[in-house]
Amino acid sequence: MLAHNYFTSSIGKKQILALTGLGLLGFTVTHLAGNFFLFVGADAFNKYAYTLTSNPLIYVAEAGLIGMFLLHVVLALVLKTENHSARPVKYYNKTRTGRGETIASATMPITGVIILVFIILHLLNFKFGAHYTTNVAGTEMRDLYRVVIEYFANPLYVAWYCFAVCALGLHTSHGVQSVFQTWGFNHKSYTPHIKTAGVLYGLFVAIGFSSLAIFCHFQN
C-alpha cells in the first residue's frame, strides 16, 4: 500500500488530472488557431508549420506536451479503475436524476478513448506522414499543406475526423468546468458562466476543427 500523500490521495490525483487537462485545453486552442492558416493558403500554412518546427524550443514544448498527455491518460485510468472497484456490485436499476450528470460528464471515459485513438492516428497521418517539400520565398520546407489536403480528399477520413473532434468538444466542455471545481473554485454567480464558457469552448473546438476538415476536402 502506497503511503497516503498528496499524489496518492483522491483529491491530489484529481487536481493533477485537472491541471494536465488545463494544459491540454490550452494546447488545443493554440493548435486550432495555428491551423486556421489552412484557410489562408498553402504558403501561409507551410510557413507557419516551418517556423514552428524549426524553432529548437519545439522539442521542449513537445516533451512537455507528451508528459502532460501521458500523465493525463494514466491518472484517468487509475481513477477510473478505482471508481470501478468502489462499487463491486452494480445496481440492478439506476436512473439518472436528470439534475446532475450531463452527456459530456457521463461519456468522459468513452470520449477520452476516442481522443486517444484519434491522436495516435493523427500523428501518424500528419506529423509522421508523407514528406513532400516545397519552396516558399526561397526557403526549402516541408509541404505539410499537401499532406493535409490529400488526407481529406477521402470523405470517410473527413467524417472520422469530424466525429473525433466532436468527441473532443464534448470532453473539453466538461473539462473546463471541472478544472475550476476541482481546484476549489465554485461561486454562486460565476460558476454558471464557467459552465457556459465550457460549452462554448467545446463548440468552438468541434466546429473549428470540423470546418477545417470540410474546407480541406473541397480544396481537392
Binding site: S10, I11, K13, K14, Q15, L79, E82, N83, A86, R87, R96, T97, G98, R99, G100, E101, T102, S105, A106, M108, H174, Q177, S178, F180, Q181, T182, W183, G184, F185, N186, H187, K188, T191
Partner: peptide, 27 residues
Amino acid sequence: GNCTNHAECEASCPKGINLSNIARMNK
C-alpha cells in the same frame, strides 16, 4: 471512489447539500 464532477450527489441529496462544498474541500 473519486469524484468526477457529475453532480449526481447534489441532485439526490435529501438536504440539498451543494457541490460548492466539494470545491471548498479541494481548496
